[in-house]
Computed example of a mutant assay.
Amino acid sequence: MSNLNIQITLSEKKKDKLPTDQLVFGTTFTDHMFIADYIEGKGWHNHRVVPYAPITLEPSATIFHYGQTIFEGMKAYLSEDGVVRLFRPDQNMKRMNHSADRLSMPQIDENHALEALVELIKVDKEWIPKDPGTSLYIRPFMIATEPHLGVSASKSYTYMIIMSPVGSYYEEGIHPVKILVESEYVRAVAGGTGNAKTAGNYASSLKAQEVADREGYSQVLWLDGIERKYIEEVGSMNVFFKIDGEVVTPALNGSILDGITRKSIIDLLKHWSVPVVERRVSIDEIREAHRTGKLDEAFGTGTAAVISPIGEFRYQGELFYVNNGETGELSAKLYDALTGIQKGTQEDPFGWVVELNKK
């Protein structure tokens, strides 16, 4: 986005804010949103902060028919001293451009995108909840808007940012979840769009999630789409295993999303001198580690939950439990460290946090 000049139109009527304990993830939105438009040959223009409201698109808009859309997920945190913090926002914008390239969409100027985000947060700062575990969830996204029925990249796009106050992901502290290993459906394959953050990846995951829900499981563990034996992600999160003292996570292979929480966990473990390796991990290896008593912990990582401990797997009718179904020591330590850095209650030795209004 070039020639950034943000026009601000404030809402004439503010929305009522729900108490923190009534917030449901992704259902309450702030008073304003950011919008910018793109036309081939003109580039990004008409940058504006406007009241949150429905948008109008042609029924023939490319997004509806050919699925050209990408998005990001990030959070803003308000500490007790009133400082607003963002966690590695540069990585979100970098990944957005990676996704845009894969979907044949225009690149954004990452610095200008951050500038727009900061401006929007300033306008709606009062929406950031203060209670422990709470935050302001931020959703930047881009959609193809050209009114054209033809399988080709759109010539026009809209980039938007909307924001939603969210309560604590774990109301009573982090607790392990039950995971169903998926053996019929696949999430993505190398060469596809699995390493881009695009809507189709999530739409294709819904059927397997319905099955997991019916069986009483929180999420599915995805296996690779070729051999159906190598672990990729858990639900919409990256996944880690602690096996005989070493932490292992599936290596990025073109079908696994390069999670920002994932890379932060890896850096934290290295900082603590905890052995951590990225490589192929088969479900048979995990089953054998459980059988021999070497599967110490397992957990998912992502923006929403940060750390989601896994207490049980079911694979081909076989159950195997992790750490007696309890949250592991390392999982809890990682959760406390990362949320502490995000909130500003713990030291940030990596320079990950961007403070927006510190005096």
Rank of each mutant, 00 (worst) to 15 (best):
M1H: 04
S2L: 04
L4G: 09
L10E: 14
L10I: 10
E12A: 07
K15T: 02
T20G: 13
F25C: 03
T27D: 06
F29R: 07
M33P: 01
M33C: 09
Y38K: 11
G41N: 15
I55V: 15
P59F: 13
I63P: 01
Y66K: 09
K75I: 02
Y77C: 05
V83I: 14
N92R: 08
M93N: 10
M93Y: 15
M96Y: 03
N97C: 10
H98D: 03
R102L: 13
M105G: 02
M105P: 03
E110W: 00
A113I: 02
L114D: 08
E119A: 15
I128G: 01
K130R: 12
T134S: 15
T134H: 14
P140L: 08
A144E: 00
T145W: 00
P147R: 03
G150L: 08
V151T: 09
M163S: 13
S164P: 02
I174D: 13
E182C: 02
Y185W: 06
V186W: 11
A188T: 07
V189H: 12
A190V: 10
G191R: 12
T193L: 09
K197R: 14
A203G: 13
A203Q: 05
S205W: 04
E210N: 03
E210I: 01
R214K: 14
R214P: 02
Q219V: 06
K229D: 12
E232Y: 03
M237H: 15
V239N: 14
F240N: 05
K242T: 12
I243S: 03
V247K: 10
V248I: 14
I256Q: 06
I256L: 10
D258A: 15
G259E: 00
I260T: 10
R262F: 11
K263W: 07
L269T: 13
K270H: 14
K270S: 14
V276W: 08
V277A: 04
E285P: 11
A289P: 01
A289D: 08
G302D: 05
F313N: 12
Q316K: 10
E326P: 00
T327F: 06
G328N: 00
L338N: 10
F350G: 07
V354D: 08
L356T: 13
N357C: 12
